[in-house]
């Protein structure tokens, strides 16, 4: 069973996911106070402004924390084996949740603070692509 994918209409995150079709990891900043608005939403949570500009991330960052999941009863994940959930701090200053993959043994080869870069996982039945992270 495929992973759950974002669903629309959902006005706050639609732009973010639209860009994944082009393999672009994007984030908005506030036109008034320059704060990064992440997760994306209509207003700036720092100052309330509704004016923002989107940027493309280089897709490189650091593992802020992670856990290797050994047991998940969700049918989309239960047969995946041990897989790593993580908070990734992107170099531009925003934090997102994702998976760290592309390592030999996720229970041993992932560390807090390790450098990672985005790797796109195209989906079988969707134009959307999932931004996963692999060692940089």
């Amino acid at each position: 069973m495929p992973r759950p994918l974002p669903r629309f209409p959902e006005p706050d995150t639609e732009k973010f996911w639209e860009a994944t079709k082009r393999h672009e990891l994007t984030y908005p900043t506030c036109d008034s106070c320059s704060a990064i608005i992440f997760y994306p939403r209509q207003h700036c949570p720092q100052c309330g402004s509704d004016k923002q500009t989107w940027h493309t991330s280089r897709g490189e960052g650091t593992v802020y924390s992670y856990s290797v999941i050994r047991q998940n009863r969700n049918p989309s994940f239960k047969d995946l084996g041990a897989y790593a959930l993580a908070w990734i701090d992107l170099d531009e200053g925003f934090r997102m949740m994702s998976n760290v993959t592309g390592v030999g043994d996720p229970t041993k080869d992932i560390k807090v603070g390790m450098r990672v870069k985005v790797q796109w996982e195209d989906q079988p039945d969707s134009e959307l692509s999932l931004p996963l992270f692999v060692p940089a």
Binding site: L85, M97, N99
Partner: peptide, 17 residues
């Protein structure tokens, strides 16, 4: 659909994790 689920539901997060 909502703004949190759209950013978190694809990663297989469990409560314990």
């Amino acid at each position: 659909p909502n703004w949190i689920g759209n950013m978190e539901d694809s990663w297989g997060q469990t409560l314990i994790a």
